[in-house]
Computed example of a mutant assay.
Amino acid sequence: MAGYYEGLIILVGINIIAVIGVSILTGFTRLFSFGNGGFMAIGAYTGAILSTKLHTPLVVSILGGMLVAGFIAFLLGKITLGLKGDYFLIATLGFGESVRVIIENLQSVTGGARGYSGIPYKTDLLVILVSVAVAIFIAWNLLHSKMGRNFMAIREQEIAADAIGIDTAKYKNMAFVISAMFAAWAGVLFAHYFTFIVPVMFNMVKSTEMTITVVIGGLGSLTGSIVATTLLTLLPELARAAAEYRMLAYGLAVVLIITLRPSGLMGYKEFSARGIYYWLKDRFTRKAVHSSEEASS
Protein backbone atom coordinates (compact mmCIF):
# COMPACT_ATOMS: atom_id res chain seq x y z
CA MET A 1 0.00 0.00 0.00
CA ALA A 2 1.05 3.60 -0.53
CA GLY A 3 2.80 5.67 2.13
CA TYR A 4 0.89 8.32 4.04
CA TYR A 5 1.81 11.34 1.91
CA GLU A 6 1.55 9.36 -1.30
CA GLY A 7 -1.89 8.22 -0.15
CA LEU A 8 -2.95 11.85 0.39
CA ILE A 9 -1.88 12.74 -3.15
CA ILE A 10 -3.84 9.77 -4.49
CA LEU A 11 -6.98 10.81 -2.59
CA VAL A 12 -6.63 14.38 -3.85
CA GLY A 13 -6.27 13.09 -7.41
CA ILE A 14 -9.34 10.85 -7.18
CA ASN A 15 -11.42 13.71 -5.80
CA ILE A 16 -10.16 16.12 -8.47
CA ILE A 17 -11.36 13.81 -11.25
CA ALA A 18 -14.78 13.42 -9.61
CA VAL A 19 -15.15 17.17 -8.96
CA ILE A 20 -14.13 18.06 -12.54
CA GLY A 21 -17.23 16.18 -13.66
CA VAL A 22 -19.42 18.14 -11.25
CA SER A 23 -17.77 21.37 -12.38
CA ILE A 24 -18.66 20.67 -16.02
CA LEU A 25 -22.29 19.99 -15.07
CA THR A 26 -22.89 22.51 -12.30
CA GLY A 27 -20.26 25.18 -12.87
CA PHE A 28 -20.50 25.46 -16.64
CA THR A 29 -24.06 24.32 -17.37
CA ARG A 30 -25.69 25.36 -14.04
CA LEU A 31 -27.41 22.01 -13.49
CA PHE A 32 -27.25 21.02 -9.83
CA SER A 33 -27.15 17.27 -9.25
CA PHE A 34 -26.85 15.03 -6.20
CA GLY A 35 -26.48 11.90 -8.31
CA ASN A 36 -22.73 11.86 -8.88
CA GLY A 37 -22.14 9.69 -5.83
CA GLY A 38 -24.36 7.09 -7.49
CA PHE A 39 -22.39 7.29 -10.75
CA MET A 40 -19.17 6.98 -8.77
CA ALA A 41 -20.58 3.80 -7.19
CA ILE A 42 -21.53 2.43 -10.62
CA GLY A 43 -17.99 3.02 -11.84
CA ALA A 44 -16.42 1.53 -8.72
CA TYR A 45 -18.47 -1.67 -8.75
CA THR A 46 -18.28 -2.11 -12.54
CA GLY A 47 -14.52 -1.67 -12.52
CA ALA A 48 -14.12 -3.95 -9.51
CA ILE A 49 -16.20 -6.73 -11.09
CA LEU A 50 -14.29 -6.47 -14.37
CA SER A 51 -10.93 -6.65 -12.56
CA THR A 52 -11.84 -9.53 -10.24
CA LYS A 53 -14.02 -11.66 -12.52
CA LEU A 54 -12.49 -11.02 -15.95
CA HIS A 55 -9.01 -9.91 -14.81
CA THR A 56 -9.06 -6.89 -17.12
CA PRO A 57 -6.29 -4.26 -17.11
CA LEU A 58 -7.01 -1.05 -15.20
CA VAL A 59 -7.54 0.94 -18.40
CA VAL A 60 -10.22 -1.51 -19.56
CA SER A 61 -11.88 -1.42 -16.12
CA ILE A 62 -11.93 2.39 -16.24
CA LEU A 63 -13.41 2.46 -19.73
CA GLY A 64 -15.98 -0.17 -18.75
CA GLY A 65 -17.08 1.79 -15.69
CA MET A 66 -17.28 5.03 -17.67
CA LEU A 67 -19.33 3.46 -20.46
CA VAL A 68 -21.84 1.87 -18.09
CA ALA A 69 -22.24 5.10 -16.11
CA GLY A 70 -22.48 7.17 -19.30
CA PHE A 71 -25.18 4.92 -20.75
CA ILE A 72 -27.25 5.06 -17.55
CA ALA A 73 -26.79 8.85 -17.37
CA PHE A 74 -27.95 9.18 -20.98
CA LEU A 75 -31.17 7.28 -20.23
CA LEU A 76 -31.71 9.13 -16.94
CA GLY A 77 -31.08 12.48 -18.62
CA LYS A 78 -33.65 11.76 -21.31
CA ILE A 79 -36.23 11.22 -18.56
CA THR A 80 -35.31 13.92 -16.03
CA LEU A 81 -33.67 16.85 -17.85
CA GLY A 82 -37.08 18.15 -18.84
CA LEU A 83 -37.60 18.94 -15.17
CA LYS A 84 -36.68 22.43 -14.02
CA GLY A 85 -34.72 23.64 -11.01
CA ASP A 86 -35.32 21.80 -7.75
CA TYR A 87 -37.27 19.00 -9.43
CA PHE A 88 -34.23 17.83 -11.39
CA LEU A 89 -32.12 18.05 -8.23
CA ILE A 90 -34.62 15.89 -6.32
CA ALA A 91 -34.71 13.36 -9.17
CA THR A 92 -30.92 12.98 -9.15
CA LEU A 93 -30.91 12.70 -5.36
CA GLY A 94 -33.43 9.87 -5.60
CA PHE A 95 -31.31 8.20 -8.29
CA GLY A 96 -28.19 8.33 -6.12
CA GLU A 97 -29.95 6.73 -3.17
CA SER A 98 -31.60 4.14 -5.42
CA VAL A 99 -28.19 3.05 -6.73
CA ARG A 100 -26.97 2.52 -3.17
CA VAL A 101 -30.06 0.49 -2.22
CA ILE A 102 -29.84 -1.64 -5.38
CA ILE A 103 -26.17 -2.41 -4.70
CA GLU A 104 -27.01 -3.41 -1.13
CA ASN A 105 -29.66 -5.84 -2.38
CA LEU A 106 -27.56 -7.47 -5.13
CA GLN A 107 -25.57 -9.53 -2.64
CA SER A 108 -24.66 -12.27 -5.10
CA VAL A 109 -23.02 -9.74 -7.45
CA THR A 110 -21.89 -6.80 -5.30
CA GLY A 111 -21.54 -8.35 -1.86
CA GLY A 112 -24.43 -6.25 -0.56
CA ALA A 113 -24.00 -4.17 2.57
CA ARG A 114 -21.02 -6.32 3.60
CA GLY A 115 -18.99 -4.86 0.76
CA TYR A 116 -16.99 -6.08 -2.20
CA SER A 117 -13.47 -7.30 -1.44
CA GLY A 118 -10.53 -8.83 -3.28
CA ILE A 119 -10.10 -5.89 -5.66
CA PRO A 120 -6.50 -5.72 -6.91
CA TYR A 121 -4.44 -2.70 -5.88
CA LYS A 122 -3.72 -0.84 -9.11
CA THR A 123 -4.21 2.85 -8.28
CA ASP A 124 -0.68 3.99 -7.47
CA LEU A 125 0.87 7.47 -7.62
CA LEU A 126 1.86 7.21 -11.29
CA VAL A 127 -1.65 6.12 -12.31
CA ILE A 128 -3.16 9.06 -10.42
CA LEU A 129 -0.78 11.65 -11.85
CA VAL A 130 -1.43 10.44 -15.41
CA SER A 131 -5.20 10.21 -14.80
CA VAL A 132 -5.43 13.73 -13.35
CA ALA A 133 -3.34 15.18 -16.18
CA VAL A 134 -5.51 13.46 -18.81
CA ALA A 135 -8.74 14.50 -17.02
CA ILE A 136 -7.68 18.17 -16.82
CA PHE A 137 -6.53 18.11 -20.46
CA ILE A 138 -9.86 16.66 -21.62
CA ALA A 139 -11.96 19.02 -19.50
CA TRP A 140 -9.95 22.13 -20.43
CA ASN A 141 -10.16 21.45 -24.16
CA LEU A 142 -13.84 20.49 -23.88
CA LEU A 143 -14.75 23.72 -22.11
CA HIS A 144 -12.82 25.80 -24.66
CA SER A 145 -14.50 24.09 -27.62
CA LYS A 146 -17.82 24.85 -29.29
CA MET A 147 -19.48 22.36 -26.93
CA GLY A 148 -18.09 24.16 -23.89
CA ARG A 149 -19.24 27.53 -25.20
CA ASN A 150 -22.73 26.08 -25.66
CA PHE A 151 -22.63 24.80 -22.06
CA MET A 152 -21.79 28.31 -20.86
CA ALA A 153 -24.50 29.85 -23.04
CA ILE A 154 -27.04 27.57 -21.36
CA ARG A 155 -25.63 28.55 -17.96
CA GLU A 156 -25.95 32.26 -18.63
CA GLN A 157 -29.39 32.28 -20.28
CA GLU A 158 -31.03 29.06 -21.40
CA ILE A 159 -33.97 30.76 -23.14
CA ALA A 160 -31.65 32.99 -25.17
CA ALA A 161 -29.42 30.01 -26.04
CA ASP A 162 -32.46 28.12 -27.29
CA ALA A 163 -33.57 31.15 -29.29
CA ILE A 164 -30.27 31.37 -31.23
CA GLY A 165 -30.47 27.73 -32.28
CA ILE A 166 -28.57 25.84 -29.55
CA ASP A 167 -30.19 22.46 -28.85
CA THR A 168 -30.31 23.01 -25.09
CA ALA A 169 -31.82 19.59 -24.31
CA LYS A 170 -29.06 17.83 -26.25
CA TYR A 171 -26.22 19.78 -24.65
CA LYS A 172 -27.60 19.47 -21.13
CA ASN A 173 -27.79 15.71 -21.60
CA MET A 174 -24.23 15.69 -22.96
CA ALA A 175 -23.00 17.59 -19.89
CA PHE A 176 -24.85 15.14 -17.65
CA VAL A 177 -23.31 12.13 -19.41
CA ILE A 178 -19.79 13.60 -19.31
CA SER A 179 -20.16 14.42 -15.61
CA ALA A 180 -21.29 10.84 -14.88
CA MET A 181 -18.34 9.40 -16.81
CA PHE A 182 -15.85 11.49 -14.84
CA ALA A 183 -17.51 10.34 -11.59
CA ALA A 184 -17.27 6.70 -12.74
CA TRP A 185 -13.60 7.20 -13.66
CA ALA A 186 -12.92 8.42 -10.13
CA GLY A 187 -14.96 5.51 -8.73
CA VAL A 188 -12.84 2.90 -10.54
CA LEU A 189 -9.64 4.48 -9.24
CA PHE A 190 -11.17 4.68 -5.76
CA ALA A 191 -12.04 0.97 -5.78
CA HIS A 192 -8.57 -0.06 -6.98
CA TYR A 193 -6.92 2.07 -4.31
CA PHE A 194 -8.86 0.92 -1.26
CA THR A 195 -9.34 -2.66 -2.66
CA PHE A 196 -12.58 -2.90 -0.64
CA ILE A 197 -15.78 -0.95 -1.20
CA VAL A 198 -19.16 -0.74 0.50
CA PRO A 199 -22.29 1.11 -0.70
CA VAL A 200 -22.20 3.62 2.17
CA MET A 201 -18.99 5.09 0.69
CA PHE A 202 -21.11 6.53 -2.14
CA ASN A 203 -24.09 7.92 -0.26
CA MET A 204 -25.66 11.38 -0.54
CA VAL A 205 -22.89 12.90 1.60
CA LYS A 206 -20.36 12.09 -1.14
CA SER A 207 -22.47 13.85 -3.76
CA THR A 208 -22.98 16.82 -1.45
CA GLU A 209 -19.24 17.14 -0.81
CA MET A 210 -18.51 17.32 -4.54
CA THR A 211 -21.18 19.96 -5.19
CA ILE A 212 -20.05 22.07 -2.22
CA THR A 213 -16.45 21.88 -3.44
CA VAL A 214 -17.45 23.30 -6.83
CA VAL A 215 -19.42 26.12 -5.16
CA ILE A 216 -16.46 27.02 -2.93
CA GLY A 217 -13.97 26.90 -5.81
CA GLY A 218 -16.11 29.01 -8.13
CA LEU A 219 -18.99 27.91 -10.32
CA GLY A 220 -17.30 29.16 -13.49
CA SER A 221 -13.72 28.08 -12.82
CA LEU A 222 -12.18 24.68 -13.54
CA THR A 223 -8.94 25.56 -11.75
CA GLY A 224 -10.96 26.96 -8.85
CA SER A 225 -12.62 23.55 -8.44
CA ILE A 226 -9.18 21.88 -8.48
CA VAL A 227 -7.81 24.26 -5.83
CA ALA A 228 -10.90 23.83 -3.62
CA THR A 229 -10.72 20.03 -3.97
CA THR A 230 -7.09 20.02 -2.88
CA LEU A 231 -7.79 22.22 0.14
CA LEU A 232 -10.94 20.39 1.26
CA THR A 233 -9.28 16.97 0.91
CA LEU A 234 -6.14 17.91 2.83
CA LEU A 235 -7.70 20.01 5.62
CA PRO A 236 -9.55 17.11 7.35
CA GLU A 237 -6.28 15.16 7.30
CA LEU A 238 -4.31 18.06 8.75
CA ALA A 239 -6.98 18.44 11.47
CA ARG A 240 -7.68 14.74 11.92
CA ALA A 241 -8.96 15.21 15.50
CA ALA A 242 -11.88 17.24 14.13
CA ALA A 243 -12.33 15.28 10.88
CA GLU A 244 -15.80 14.09 11.92
CA TYR A 245 -16.96 17.72 11.79
CA ARG A 246 -15.90 18.18 8.14
CA MET A 247 -19.49 18.49 6.87
CA LEU A 248 -20.11 21.22 9.45
CA ALA A 249 -16.93 22.93 8.25
CA TYR A 250 -18.06 22.57 4.62
CA GLY A 251 -21.44 24.10 5.49
CA LEU A 252 -19.85 27.04 7.28
CA ALA A 253 -17.42 27.51 4.40
CA VAL A 254 -20.31 27.66 1.91
CA VAL A 255 -22.16 30.23 4.06
CA LEU A 256 -19.04 32.39 4.33
CA ILE A 257 -18.23 32.08 0.63
CA ILE A 258 -21.78 32.95 -0.44
CA THR A 259 -21.85 35.88 2.01
CA LEU A 260 -18.37 37.31 1.41
CA ARG A 261 -17.59 36.12 -2.12
CA PRO A 262 -20.71 34.82 -3.92
CA SER A 263 -18.73 33.85 -7.03
CA GLY A 264 -16.45 31.48 -5.05
CA LEU A 265 -12.70 31.55 -4.53
CA MET A 266 -11.88 31.95 -8.22
CA GLY A 267 -15.22 33.12 -9.58
CA TYR A 268 -15.06 32.90 -13.37
CA LYS A 269 -11.27 33.20 -13.52
CA GLU A 270 -8.74 30.52 -14.39
CA PHE A 271 -5.10 30.05 -13.50
CA SER A 272 -2.84 30.30 -16.53
CA ALA A 273 0.90 30.60 -17.09
CA ARG A 274 0.39 33.93 -18.88
CA GLY A 275 -1.83 35.26 -16.08
CA ILE A 276 0.71 34.32 -13.40
CA TYR A 277 3.51 35.92 -15.46
CA TYR A 278 1.66 39.23 -15.80
CA TRP A 279 0.65 39.18 -12.12
CA LEU A 280 4.26 38.68 -11.02
CA LYS A 281 5.46 41.33 -13.50
CA ASP A 282 2.91 43.81 -12.15
CA ARG A 283 3.89 43.09 -8.56
CA PHE A 284 7.63 43.56 -9.22
CA THR A 285 7.00 46.68 -11.30
CA ARG A 286 4.98 48.27 -8.51
CA LYS A 287 7.66 47.34 -5.99
CA ALA A 288 10.41 48.84 -8.16
CA VAL A 289 8.45 52.07 -8.67
CA HIS A 290 7.74 52.32 -4.95
CA SER A 291 11.44 51.78 -4.10
CA SER A 292 12.56 54.44 -6.62
CA GLU A 293 10.05 56.95 -5.22
CA GLU A 294 11.33 56.33 -1.70
CA ALA A 295 14.94 56.73 -2.86
CA SER A 296 14.20 60.03 -4.67
CA SER A 297 12.38 61.43 -1.67
Rank of each mutant, 00 (worst) to 15 (best):
G3A: 14
E6V: 14
L8S: 02
I10Y: 07
G13E: 07
N15V: 02
T26N: 13
L31K: 05
S33Y: 08
N36C: 04
Y45S: 00
I62D: 05
G64I: 14
G64A: 11
V68I: 14
A69D: 10
G70R: 05
F71S: 07
F71A: 12
F74H: 04
L75N: 03
K78F: 13
G82R: 15
F88Q: 00
E97V: 07
R100W: 09
E104H: 08
L106W: 15
G111A: 07
G111F: 10
S117G: 09
I119R: 08
D124V: 02
L126T: 11
V130G: 02
A133L: 13
A135Q: 06
F137N: 02
F137V: 08
N150S: 14
A153L: 08
Q157Y: 11
D162C: 04
A163R: 06
T168V: 15
K170P: 04
N173D: 10
A175Q: 00
S179E: 08
S179W: 15
A183H: 09
W185E: 05
A186L: 11
V188M: 10
F194G: 00
F194E: 01
M201A: 10
M201S: 13
V205E: 15
T213D: 01
T213N: 06
S221T: 04
G224H: 10
L232D: 03
T233L: 04
L234F: 13
L235A: 12
E237S: 05
L238W: 12
A239E: 11
A241T: 13
R246V: 07
A249G: 08
Y250S: 01
V254A: 11
L256T: 08
I257H: 05
I258L: 15
R261I: 05
P262S: 11
S263G: 01
S263Y: 14
G264Y: 09
L265V: 09
K269Q: 13
E270S: 05
A273S: 08
A273Y: 14
Y278H: 10
K281G: 00
K281V: 10
H290V: 14
S292F: 15
E294I: 15
S296Y: 15
